[in-house]
């Protein structure tokens, strides 16, 4: 069946589109544990790509490798033609990859607005002296950034909560705020780590709409998700990870019918 998938080449096949991110035989080893085992795939520009797999399959580890939190033991991570493996997280963010976290990591004792403005940090140009002396240039930039931050809060649908401490927001609002903060870094590739975790069905629908909107801004979305409805509904293509290895890759339909994938999720007996 896997072969069949490789040769199917449906019309909306996106592998041929220019890849924004290429994973080239990436492995990550922690001591004796091979968390990511020789994984290769491409994320094409302008698509929604999903990474799924059972718990502990190495999905978040892979995200951490891409965003520089871990350095992969082997392999190349090519983002827009540049190998970013081993880059520091802040360098990766500056290059144009932003992310959210599985276990929300907002700046709790800062306002929602400030959280977003922190995201814009990397696109700001004010130097130390500008900040010390509040030069007109710095003031203009602050103004612009504040305005943009409000837009982003509106964009994710929490515009009214800009002045609350991030920790005081409701769970769903915190997830949205994390997305707004990530968007503030002006990424071209957005990594979402289980964005729908803990969401109600209604919120999941809204999330899928949000992902579409983000896509509409020309930002490629790469997400990890457990919820199959979200994955199948939102993504164009899917890769499946199990025990650190990629066991399948393809369109939602292909994945849904893939024997290996079904085995991985339900056990061999199924």
């Amino acid at each position: 069946m896997a072969d069949q998938m490789e040769n199917a080449a449906p019309a909306d096949r996106m592998e041929d589109a220019a890849p924004i991110l290429q994973l080239d035989h990436v492995s990550k080893r922690f001591g004796g544990l091979l968390a990511v085992d020789d994984v290769s795939f491409n994320v094409a520009k302008g698509e929604v790509f999903a990474l799924i797999g059972p718990n502990g399959a190495g999905k978040t580890t892979l995200f951490n490798c891409i965003t520089g939190i871990f350095s992969p033991t082997e392999g190349r991570l090519v983002f827009e033609g540049r190998d970013v493996a081993g880059h520091k997280p802040h360098d990766v963010a500056e290059l144009g990859i932003a992310r959210t976290f599985q276990n929300i990591r907002l700046f709790g004792y800062m306002s929602a607005l400030d959280n977003v403005r922190v995201g814009q940090h990397v696109r700001m140009r004010a130097k130390l002296w500008d900040a010390l002396l509040k030069t007109p240039k710095e003031r203009r930039e602050e103004l612009r950034v504040t305005e943009r931050a409000r837009e982003l809060l509106d964009f994710v649908g929490i515009g009214r909560h800009g002045d609350s401490y991030a920790r005081n927001l409701a769970y769903g609002q915190q997830r949205r705020l994390e997305i707004a903060r990530a968007l503030a870094t002006e990424p071209r590739l957005l990594l979402l780590d289980e964005p729908a975790a803990g969401f109600t069905p209604q919120e999941k629908v809204e999330l899928m709409q949000l992902v579409e909107k983000i896509l509409g801004q020309g930002i490629t979305v790469f997400l990890i998700e457990h919820d199959m409805k979200v994955v199948m509904g939102a993504s164009r293509r899917i890769a499946v990870l199990d025990h650190g290895e990629k066991i399948a890759e393809g369109t939602p339909d292909e994945i849904r019918n893939n024997r290996k994938v079904i085995e991985a999720y339900l056990g061999k007996s199924a």
């Binding site: 963010a93 992310r99 403005r117 922190v118 940090h121 130390l128 509040k134 950034v145």
Partner: peptide
Amino acid sequence: NLQRSRLGRAWGAVREDELAADAMGINT
């Protein structure tokens, strides 16, 4: 002035969650 600048916010971010700050593009 510093407190109300991008540097002030970066300090806040580092104080609150260093890893997240790093991932948001702040050279911690």
